Amino acid sequence: MVSEGNVAPDFTLPDENGNQVSLSQFRGRKVILYFYPKDDTPGCTTEACGIRDSFPNFEASGAVVLGVSPDSVESHKKFKEKYNLPFTLLADTDHKVAEMYGVWGTKKMYGREFTGVLRTTFLIDEEGKVQKVFKNVKPDVHAQELVEALAS
């Protein structure tokens, strides 16, 4: 997994409108890069709406929010519109970026094992270095954790 102090690996993915977005285009700004498993599922919706509701705090600190999941561009577009999400969602359909960041792995749910996104967020500083890694994110409190991390 990418660790605190590492330079965040650059990547380019399509956003919810099909536009290509690269991490490197946000140099000079803080970036909240959050990986989540699936659009419009209970935990992911709770997390996204918490980030939406705290978005003015992120904007005030000059931070950009990028949500990444293996869902398609079309799925992201519907999810973003349904919940009025004011930030960019990126489609990592082949999960290569999730693998690059070390957040693609084995999960357990309801007694079965499967491979998917391990809910993780990377707070990246203006120089492109990982300032903080949030592992095993709890969707209902994560936005507040991010607000506090940006304030410190």
Rank of each mutant, 00 (worst) to 15 (best):
V2N: 03
E4A: 14
E4Q: 12
A8M: 10
A8H: 01
D15L: 08
D15C: 09
E16I: 01
S22A: 15
Q25A: 12
R27C: 08
K30D: 13
V31M: 10
V31E: 11
I32Q: 01
L33I: 04
L33A: 03
F35E: 12
Y36L: 00
Y36W: 03
K38Y: 05
T41K: 01
T41H: 10
T45Q: 04
T46S: 15
T46I: 15
E47D: 09
E47W: 03
A48I: 03
C49A: 07
G50F: 13
G50A: 11
I51W: 08
D53E: 11
S54A: 15
F55E: 07
E59F: 04
E59Y: 05
G62Y: 05
V64W: 11
G67F: 02
V68R: 00
S69C: 09
P70W: 11
P70Y: 14
P70E: 14
E74C: 08
E74N: 10
E74T: 03
S75K: 00
K80P: 01
E81D: 14
Y83N: 14
L85Q: 01
T88W: 09
D92I: 09
K96F: 07
V97W: 07
V97P: 03
A98W: 02
E99W: 08
Y101H: 02
V103A: 12
W104T: 00
T106G: 05
T106I: 01
K107F: 06
G111L: 15
R112P: 05
R112T: 10
E113N: 12
E113P: 08
F114A: 04
T115M: 15
L118S: 06
R119L: 06
R119P: 06
R119G: 08
F122G: 08
L123D: 01
D125H: 00
D125N: 09
D125L: 10
G128L: 09
Q131W: 10
V133W: 06
N136R: 06
N136A: 14
V141T: 15
V141Q: 08
E145G: 12
A149S: 14
L150Y: 02
A151E: 10
